[in-house]
Design a protein around this nucleic acid. Structure first.
Lengths: 149, 149
DNA sequence: CGAGGATCGTCAGGGATCCTGACGGAATCT
DNA sequence: AGATTCCGTCAGGATCCCTGACGATCCTCG
């Protein structure tokens, strides 16, 4: 416990996590928009979770923590804009697999270096050891905070 | 780590930040709901940013990264449910200060120990040094990722 | 002092997001 | 086979959030 300072209340860890998360998200979405990929926040949150070999709607919904209905609508939008495509799931007749389409892969290819750049900026600000420690701590924290892990 | 998922690359740092953030948020909101404080996600994001001595709508909007109009509507909802109140800003005739009302302080008093509990769980999982290092890194990261800091 | 410009909060209107409930079709369990 | 669970969709509605425009107030500068 750190001492309470009346003029500078320590924000809770949740808020501290939120700032860089939101910053990274904004940077990526801005870069995508400038390149002509108009993707909303909600769409992006689903899109980034589409696995290379395809994902089921139910899985995407669970990971993004929205209902199947919401995920279905978002996939509809992404499909209309050619970011993803739906194919039958060969292993389950009820399901369909959502996969990245060509345009979705283009967007992903554009987003990756932006993420890398931002992470590099963070590493510069924190120092390499601290950045490594941060990622290590977060990775271990995921074990108890990601219900899907 | 298992080799069962060939596509299980390291998630980007943004996603790693998101898991614990969302987990903490859910825990707090669930606890509040169980105690009869029905607060939505969007309302909570504004409510937790209300300063003890009152905040202006414009400031709340900037911090929560929504428009003034959205913030205004959320404050309306919170005010209707007696979580906050609006008082004239003595230093500016245009502005009004949004302050926690009695019910809002009750909710805050309930939320605080929940946050503390979750943070303690994290510290147990990570070990005290790692938890301290995590908070230190996040605090420094805030310097370059919180446009409001 | 008074005009111009910036800021504060609100109104109006509309689109995006997300939910509960219910359902048919397919897989799985007994 | 029958019962149950799981997958995705339809229907309807609430919430969230935005752009644009506006009156009121504050502030600066001639």
């Amino acid at each position: 416990m750190t001492a309470e300072r009346p003029d500078a209340v320590e924000p809770n860890t949740g808020l501290l996590l939120f700032y860089p998360y939101r910053a990274l998200e904004s940077r990526v979405l801005t870069a995508l928009a400038e390149a002509g990929f108009e993707i909303t926040l909600a769409q992006a949150r689903l899109l980034q979770r589409v696995a290379d070999d395809g994902s089921r709607l139910t899985d995407l919904a669970a990971q993004a923590q929205v209902t199947k209905q919401t995920a279905g609508e978002l996939v509809d939008q992404l499909q209309r804009r050619r970011y993803v495509e739906r194919v039958p799931d060969p292993s389950d007749g009820r399901a369909r697999l959502i996969r990245l389409a060509a345009r979705g892969r283009e967007a992903a290819a554009l987003a990756a270096p932006v993420v890398a750049t931002v992470e590099a900026e963070w590493a510069t600000h924190l120092g390499p050891e601290s950045m490594t420690a941060l990622r290590a701590a977060l990775t271990r924290l995921r074990e108890i905070t990601d219900p899907w892990a």
